[in-house]
Design a binder for these strands. Structure first.
Lengths: 133, 133
DNA sequence: TATTGTTATACTCTATAACTATA
DNA sequence: TATAGTTATAGAGTATAACAATA
């Protein structure tokens, strides 16, 4: 069977699980992409939009708007980039850091359910292979 | 690192590769989801919208519209379902079958590029794990 | 009464490109 | 001249729900 279809279905199921839980934890109403952006930023902050854009494979214009949105909700802030006056560096606010933790919990729970058919060795192998790609 | 982020990035990269090739092979202009629908139908046809909806984890209303679109382009057709008068069975037309072949080629090429960092055994393992989920 | 499919609506996500300000 | 970011716009994808026809 087509690998691409499998990956798509996996992602769909993951989204579906998170979606039903969203009303409980997504108080800021930032949506799935907002959540992924925060998680990504958490790993590399402080970082420019350009960095996040390349990392996530998403358009910088899209990210610019989404970050403005997150900034309005006090989840991230733009600080000066001394190395380049054209850009800012993005950083999570304390509220953002806190929110990231709850997003991670929900995501980990959903991933855990989804990977239930695999034993521990297989899960580790899956992660290893994905990281290698 | 978060598995969900990894899978998302994988899917984004796959889409990006296919997107640049789309002008060459997507003469019918059905987009990535249209392509995935045709591939899915090819595996289980003839099938009802309900079946495809469950298989793909996508809304039946969305699929209904998309199938009307594909029907207008003579890629699929709705035939009578003798077992249930409420539904129709969907089937690829000869043109649809032909198109699926070219979509598969492009997709396989993109997946192959993406999985290049893995050796043959690892690729097989990856497919096995995904199928198990 | 429940299910299948259709249609409508509003919203989010995405691609593209024009624009500005710095480099 | 090239790059980082912003903004605008049009279009694709999605969730939700109301509805008609059939089970």
């Amino acid at each position: 069977m087509e690998l691409a279809l499998q990956i798509d279905r996996l992602m769909r199921r993951l989204n579906a699980r998170i979606h039903v839980q969203a009303p409980q934890f997504d108080q800021h109403n930032i949506g799935p992409i907002g959540g992924m952006i925060l998680l990504t930023l958490a790993e590399v902050q402080p970082a420019s939009i350009q960095t996040i854009s390349q990392l996530m494979g998403r358009d910088k214009g899209q990210l610019s708007r989404l970050f403005s949105n997150l900034e309005r909700r006090d989840l991230v802030l733009r600080i000066n980039n001394p190395a380049d006056q054209r850009s800012h560096l993005l950083r999570l606010t304390p509220g953002g850091e806190e929110f990231v933790i709850s997003v991670k919990q929900v995501l980990d729970g959903a991933v855990h359910e989804l990977l239930a058919p695999l034993d521990e060795a297989e899960k580790a192998e899956m992660v290893r292979l994905l990281e290698k790609i």
